[in-house]
Nucleic acid binder design. Structure first.
Lengths: 348, 348
DNA sequence: GATGATGACTGATACGGTTCAATGAATCGG
DNA sequence: CCGATTCATTGAACCGTATCAGTCATCATC
């Protein structure tokens, strides 16, 4: 039942009347091989349908052409966009990408890194859920480069690519203040996520700097998901009108879209009763029930840049060249849409 | 610069004063090893920080614990949901998943399959962009099982998991007819995608069966994306009011959400001027500008079931047990929301 | 106390490639 | 015409693990 007709280089060599070394050369250094021989070998490969065994190659080489990527929420289009950017670049460099979803679970995160280590992947793109780098140090000791994605280097020991979330939070906060809001809220969590902390802190800075009589309510959520947004909207809508915030900054667009749904369900109008701004500017933000204002991150660029830094580090290690870690920080951009449009006083 | 401090089983064996065979036994058949020895070996493993080399193991075993998955559009939440379902099950079975994005490009699709073949993955979950199975046959000859995802078996030679798209299309068409529409449209493409053909055909069947004076306009798009929807909406909106369809069935939710955006931009009201129904019922459908009616597919179940069939086939092949290919067909479900709500005649 | 039987461990081999020193043939300059 | 150089090819060693036929000691059995 198991055909197991595994053809190996030896079979090809036999058929082509050459040694295995020559077959290998045909693949890896074609110029060292006579044209006639090369064609004979190629023909034999075709005929037998031989395909190189990547495990064997990798075992010998001690290094692999596959890249591991850990994201914290594959259901979030932000991460698939980042992954697309990374994959695009890596595909061109002949690497293949393994995407693992930690689902914001530290245990799974570790397991995924363990598996990548066992596979001796060529490198790892890592979007972490916290700041610990111990696990990463071990990977690097084994010679596996790691680039930290979506989190700009608290540690100088790794390359990292991210966005200035403090600035992003400030943009969002300032925007809401500019629209004349005085009762603000921030929705997002858990605060173990640096992204959440930074975005919130940025908003707080905007508020402090503005001075004046501004209140800022913080609503913490267990995850950054649609559902979390929906349920937070319920909480907020239940507040007495006089205390209820008139504008909300959500830590990402998923939460923002959830809030939108929740508010509409609760009978609140957006932006008239409550304005919303999100973060990431995923493609669905513009298509939401009320087109969603957001703070845009260059998602695919983040992926591409991360991959580029990773490849560079891998190649430096291969060639023994020195390598300086780099921390790339993109600047976020405010995208104002209807969900934060100033309330029309002239209603009638 | 390259530390290369690669510790192998031999190092562990030396430190623990045993042979490499024993170290291997500690891992794979712990019961064949004396307790004291086992602990000594474990201690040595800890101390050296040894991690098994998956390539070597795999080379020896001839088979790997990693699964390749090919999807045609990773930006479509439908596929990430399917992938989540698959990954969830496979993670539990100690497999890791490699997701590759063919981006609806036949060339990339082939390349991804080539790479999986070279890696001798344990199996492949394949969401194809057309019906050709030649490439798959070769994989299977090499002993790599393939399960076809999101496309129920035209071929009995493979397991497959999908949804009855003909029934789904019919549900959508019937729903629009039930709302009293007579000028319908179908938007989607390319028609090389079986999903597109089936959904459209299903709608046509509903129309034929209903009889009466019903028109059905077909608008073809190059891909199933938000952008395709937006631009199709432009075309449709440009039609004279008397010819313009009053209800549109989009081949998937991305297109539907794009249409929605496009119609709103063009000044048409949904559902008053034109009703929309999508397909997939991705999470964002409910959160769209107007909550989107859709035909729901059990996305995560599709992934889980595919993975289950794949694992079963892999294990059957390993144990030499016979295996019967299975074609699982889920039934889609109509989800009616506001985007197809009957027009209120009593407007004033 | 000789005989198996059992249990714990060893050592060699194989997996499928890459790499590199060595070999032999052909070419070249003088 | 010969030594030197270049070119094409070979063959063996090696990567890190799993497996399996043996080896050796221990123990129960009669």
């Amino acid at each position: 039942m198991t055909p197991k007709n595994s053809v190996s280089m030896r079979d090809v060599a036999t058929l082509a009347q050459v040694s295995v070394g020559t077959v290998s050369n045909v693949l890896n250094s074609p110029d060292r091989v006579a044209e006639a021989t090369r064609q004979r070998v190629q023909a034999a490969i075709e005929k037998l349908g031989w395909v190189p065994n990547e495990s064997a190659r990798q075992l010998r080489a001690g290094r692999s052409r596959s890249i591991g990527m850990v994201v914290m929420d594959i259901a979030n289009p932000f991460f698939t966009d980042v992954a697309r950017g990374a994959e695009e670049l890596l595909y061109g460099e002949q690497y293949s990408v393994q995407i693992g979803n930690s689902d914001q679970d530290p245990g799974r995160e570790i397991t995924l890194l363990d598996r990548f280590e066992q596979q001796r992947v060529g490198g790892v793109l890592f979007a972490p859920i916290d700041d610990s780098v111990e696990r990463l140090v071990r990977l690097r000791q084994r010679g596996i480069p790691v680039v930290i994605v979506d989190r700009v280097g608290s540690s100088v020991d790794f390359c990292s690519v991210g966005v200035d979330d403090l600035a992003g939070g400030r943009l969002a906060g300032q925007h809401l203040l500019d629209q004349g809001h005085h009762r603000l809220a921030f929705v997002g969590g858990p605060s173990s996520l640096a992204q959440v902390r930074d975005r919130r802190r940025g908003m707080e800075l905007a508020v402090e700097q503005a001075g004046g009589d501004v209140s800022l309510l913080a609503v913490s959520t267990p995850t950054l998901s649609l559902e979390a947004g929906v349920s937070s909207a319920g909480e907020i809508a239940a507040l007495p009108t006089g205390e209820r915030p008139t504008a909300v900054f959500a830590a990402n667009d998923l939460v923002a879209i959830g809030l939108l749904q929740g508010f509409v369900t609760a009978g609140l109008r957006v932006p008239d009763d409550v304005a919303i701004i999100g973060y990431d500017d995923i493609a669905f933000a513009a298509a939401a029930a009320v087109p969603l204002s957001s703070v845009r991150q260059p998602r695919e660029d983040i992926g591409r840049k991360s991959a580029e830094l990773l490849v560079r580090e891998i190649e430096a290690a291969d060639s023994g060249a020195p390598h300086r870690h780099e921390a790339v920080r993109f600047t976020p951009q405010l995208i104002a849409r209807r969900s934060t449009q100033p309330r029309k006083r002239a209603k009638g």
